[in-house]
């Protein structure tokens, strides 16, 4: 068991290394100094107190979407609709935060939960189609992502657009719905703490509860599940609901805790980051926390990279892509290790 964990960790670390290596080669070819670029990436992720907070803020939604993706992958579903669920979650949270009048605190909590509910509802359609009719969830996920993004554009640019704002965004939510900062000295939203707890709870759910046990059995071997009278359909449905709820919270936490409004295309791809996080965490929910820190570093570092060194922030997508490709071939490293051993 421990050997397997170590092998997983080694595979992910090698993949990350290859990701940066290939990134460096591309930067070199394009005429940049890769060490300088990576230096400015790290610097703008951890260089001072302010950017470190930014990094942690970026980590917050990734933990939610990472936990959501882990649940999916554990049940052997390849639903990659977290980006859409995140946007829908941001809309429902915003609507509750903007339209309802509730006492402070309670308002934030209700709006936050509404965000989760939005993501959950958005997962209901593909979840039902998959559970009931076996309709391929990967394809529906992508379609729903685009629908959600365009719909959110409609909300931010049209339906609730704030004409006085200098950037494309909606009106602000009511102050009562704002998720407070941990303290004036640490202006990090309490949403961060909730995200950490949610990730750990996902681990607990998977490994210590009946639902989690059934999710893992269905994911590993649906035939056995059938014989053991575990309903595959309702397990899938549950996964879609819980996972959608988590992904929706990712959007809610950004609206209520960071922007206090929906900013046009505010997510640089937190839903996708969650998928990468789940894959490099090898679907271990507890490893989502370090994995999302890593991706948050890329995210917040990429801004500095762009501003400071003039490299498009999409460079981190290149690195992420190479990491995923390298992480998908654990066997290559085993073969390589064997070969090296044999040569000695």
């Amino acid at each position: 068991m421990i050997r397997e964990y170590l092998r997983d960790a080694a595979t992910s670390l090698i993949a990350i290394l290859i990701g940066f290596l290939v990134g460096a080669i591309i930067l070199q070819v394009a005429g940049y100094d890769p060490l300088y670029i990576y230096g400015s990436l790290i610097n703008s992720a951890f260089g001072n107190y302010y950017v470190t907070l930014n990094t942690l803020t970026a980590m917050m939604p990734i933990m939610f979407t990472g936990a959501a993706a882990t649940l999916m992958f554990k049940s052997a579903l390849f639903f990659i609709g977290m980006e859409g669920q995140l946007y829908i979650g941001s809309i429902t949270a915003f609507l509750v935060g903007h339209l309802l009048q509730l006492p402070a605190g309670l308002h934030a909590i209700i709006a936050f939960l509404a965000g989760g509910l939005g993501g959950l509802l958005w997962g209901l359609v593909p979840g039902y189609l998959r559970a009931r009719f076996g309709v391929n969830e990967t394809v529906t996920a992508i379609m729903l992502n685009w629908i959600a993004i365009h719909f959110t554009d409609y909300i931010t640019q049209y339906a609730f657009a704030d004409p006085k704002a200098t950037i494309a965004r909606t009106y602000k939510i009511l102050p009562t719905a704002v998720i407070p900062k941990i303290s004036p000295e640490v202006p990090l939203s309490w949403g961060f703490v909730v995200a950490v707890i949610a990730t750990i709870l996902t681990g607990y759910l998977l490994y210590n509860t009946v639902i989690g046990y059934e999710i893992r059995v269905v994911g590993l071997n649906p035939h056995v599940a059938r014989v053991a009278k575990i309903s595959i359909e309702s397990t899938y449905l549950r996964v879609f609901l819980i996972s959608g709820f988590l992904a929706g919270l990712a959007g809610a936490t950004m609206v209520l805790g960071v922007f206090n409004s929906i900013v046009y295309r505010f997510s640089p791809g937190y839903g996708w980051d969650g998928i990468t996080a789940a894959l490099i965490a090898r679907n271990n929910p507890y490893m989502i926390i370090p994995a999302s820190l890593f991706l948050a570093v890329l995210r917040s570092g990429s801004i500095g990279m762009m501003v400071g060194a003039g490299v498009s922030n999409e460079m981190i997508l290149v690195i992420q892509g190479v990491i995923l490709i390298s992480a998908a071939v654990p066997e290559a490293y085993i073969l390589l290790a064997r070969y090296v051993k044999a040569r000695r």
């Binding site: 068991m1 210590n208 509860t209 009946v210 639902i211 046990y213 059934e214 893992r216 059995v217 590993l220 071997n221 056995v224 014989v227 053991a228 009278k229 575990i230």
Partner: peptide, 27 residues
């Protein structure tokens, strides 16, 4: 009969896992 990737202990409750709980939810 078995989920091969799961440990012996988890396989030992397959199908009767609902009997090994606190309050129906937690194992």
């Amino acid at each position: 009969g078995l989920v091969l990737e799961m440990p012996v202990c988890e396989n030992s409750i397959l199908g009767i896992h609902k009997m090994f709980t606190f309050g129906k939810l937690a194992i």
